[in-house]
Amino acid sequence: MPVEKKPGAFDIRIVIAALIGIYGVVLTILGVIADPAEVDKADGLNINLWGGIGMLVFTAVFVLWARLRPIAVPVSTNE
């Protein structure tokens, strides 16, 4: 009978979520400390803030997906 092993931190969804999360945090911080003159250039929409929040939501969904439906890698026990 094959044994199943979970990939854990090496799941590609976790790696992608970490990268998008880092960019999301940076954009959110830039959006919070944004100069009002720069926000006015974008017709009053703080693009960095909303883009960062969107990336953080995407990160949360990916991590939730990876935790709720982990990939099971079959490991053969042939000797």
Rank of each mutant, 00 (worst) to 15 (best):
P7G: 05
L30N: 15
D40Y: 02
V3A: 12
R13S: 05
G24M: 08
L27W: 13
K41N: 03
E4H: 13
R13T: 12
P70Q: 07
R13W: 08
A66R: 13
V26D: 10
Y23E: 14
A34P: 06
A9C: 07
A34G: 07
I53P: 01
N48V: 00
M55E: 07
L64W: 13
G24F: 08
L49D: 03
T28P: 00
T77C: 03
L68S: 03
T28K: 01
K41R: 13
A72M: 09
V3C: 06
V63F: 13
D40V: 03
A17Q: 07
V3K: 14
G21N: 09
G24I: 06
I47R: 11
E4K: 13
L68I: 11
A34N: 12
L45R: 12
L68C: 01
A18R: 02
P70W: 10
D11C: 10
I29A: 14
L64E: 04
M55V: 01
S76D: 14
V63Y: 10
E79S: 09
I71C: 00
A60G: 12
I33N: 07
G24L: 02
A66F: 01
V3M: 13
L30M: 14
G8F: 08
V3P: 00
V61C: 12
K5R: 15
I53F: 14
P2T: 13
D35R: 10
D43C: 01
T59D: 02
N48R: 08
A66L: 04
W65V: 11
L30E: 11
A60L: 15
L56W: 10
D40Q: 15
N46A: 03
G44R: 09
I71D: 08
F62S: 02
P7L: 15
I20E: 06
L19T: 14
I71Y: 07
R69L: 06
G44D: 11
A42H: 12
G51R: 02
I29Q: 02
G24H: 06
P70V: 08
P2W: 04
F58I: 12
G44N: 10
V75H: 05
I29W: 13
I47D: 05
A72T: 06
R69P: 00
G21V: 12
A60E: 04
L30D: 13
N46V: 03
K5D: 07
I33Q: 05
W65T: 06
N48F: 12
V25C: 11
P74G: 05
E4P: 05
P74N: 03
G54N: 08
G31L: 09
I47G: 02
G54H: 05
T28G: 11
N78L: 11
P70E: 10
I71S: 10
P7Q: 12
N46I: 06
L56N: 04
A72Y: 12
R13F: 02
A66W: 00
V25W: 04
W50R: 04
